[in-house]
């Protein structure tokens, strides 16, 4: 009778750890990327006070070709020049990376807990994501 809840706890414990880990990871990723996006937006409007008045500027900001940051290198050099939009782009990159990091960290955590089946599943998903990312480049 008394060992019943103990058994259950022992069975469920690893998964509870995993859930906290994944949850904290997602929360951290969201908060950091949100901070970048908010700061970048503020910097953009501080650097360009005319954005609060002129309607012509919106056209320029959203016309085809306006997305100038297309790599990590460009984003980094834009950030060094304190370009608000580069800081936003960095935040967006972090946001995009968060789910992938989640899968990678889960893989390692499952391995750590000795759950080989699930570690393998996570690694397969990670592999598929990387393949589809690099195939997308060919286009």
């Amino acid at each position: 009778m008394s060992d019943e809840p103990e058994k259950k706890a022992a069975h469920e414990q690893p998964l509870v750890h995993m859930e906290l880990l994944v949850s904290n990871l997602l929360r951290g990723g969201v908060l950091v990327s949100l901070a970048f996006i908010v700061v970048g937006t503020i910097v953009t409007f501080v650097n360009h006070p005319e954005y609060a008045r002129s309607s012509a500027e919106l056209q320029r900001l959203t016309q085809p070709g306006a997305a100038v940051y297309t790599s990590i290198g460009q984003t980094a050099s834009g950030m060094l020049a304190i370009h608000g939009q580069a800081i936003v782009a960095a935040g967006l990159l972090l946001l995009i990376a968060t789910p992938v990091i989640r899968v990678g960290v889960s893989a390692v955590a499952f391995l750590w807990e000795g759950d080989k089946t699930y570690a393998a599943i996570c690694f397969v998903v990670l592999f598929l994501l990387l393949v589809s990312f690099f195939l997308g480049k060919a286009e």
């Binding site: 970048g40 959203t62 997305a67 100038v68 297309t70 790599s71 782009a89 967006l92 286009e139």
Partner: peptide, 8 residues
């Protein structure tokens, strides 16, 4: 990478 994400 394709430039389809406009930060603004």
């Amino acid at each position: 990478r394709r430039g389809d994400i406009d930060p603004f």
